[in-house]
Amino acid sequence: MDLIPSMPLPPTPSSAHAGTVANQQELRAVLSAFSTQSSIPMVVKMLPGGIPSLEVAAEHVYNTALYLRDQLQFDMLTCVSGVDMKTHLEVAYHLRATTKNLLMQLKAKIPPKTTVIDSLMGVWISANWLERETYDMFGVIFSGHPDLRRILLDDTFTGFPLRKDFQTTPAVLHDHATTQIDPEQAVSGDQLRGLGSNRSNANVFSQGDQERLHPGTPTFGHTQFHGHSFPTQTWKHTLQHEQEEQQKAAEKKKE
């Protein structure tokens, strides 16, 4: 069936230490031993649910991954998740050893103010789209990735939406966009991110609450458009209008 040879798979794990690790507890012991022996600084933790976690710096992630694949037979990269820790970015890899029923987490800390980390596509081929998604959402640049593009978002999208400093309201006014509101009112997500009832303010300012008109919608004079810009009737005016009505109602009550 294969007329055209497909992409070569990465080498299968060699069985150097096959069968030595039986369960998650032993895996943790092995990882601890590895962290003390190796020259790379590492932190070994046990996460809730009995998942060993290995934290390394971003520059060592490739070699560590190679070790995990070849020596401990972690043959499947399940999940790649970016995390924005506000001071720096982290990438969490979840690995499975299908032959031995093991699950572990490899976490790579990217130094502050940088976004570059080695791509693991040479180790596990499934890193391809998972890393693209992480780049898409967090702007983590995986060096060595052959095809690092946006995957879920629009190619013209600006910003990385899952970062904590991302503004949920658009900071940039696109000429063609139909979901615009007044850019002056764009509010940083940080200000609105509160706990408990404070948070409900965000709903007032977020997109989608205001009635918007598609530029192509015929309005028959109800709303005026200025070229391609957004309608003048924004949420500010509706708020103003509501306030005026409330005042009028209050005045009526007084009378």
Binding site: L47, G49, S53, T78, C79, A92, L103, Q105
Partner: peptide, 18 residues
């Protein structure tokens, strides 16, 4: 405070939550 990963066998494969 903390982190975890939990996965169930969904109808299409591993449905995990980190």
């Amino acid at each position: 405070r903390g982190e975890t990963y939990f996965a169930v066998e969904s109808s299409k494969g591993e449905q995990g939550i980190y």
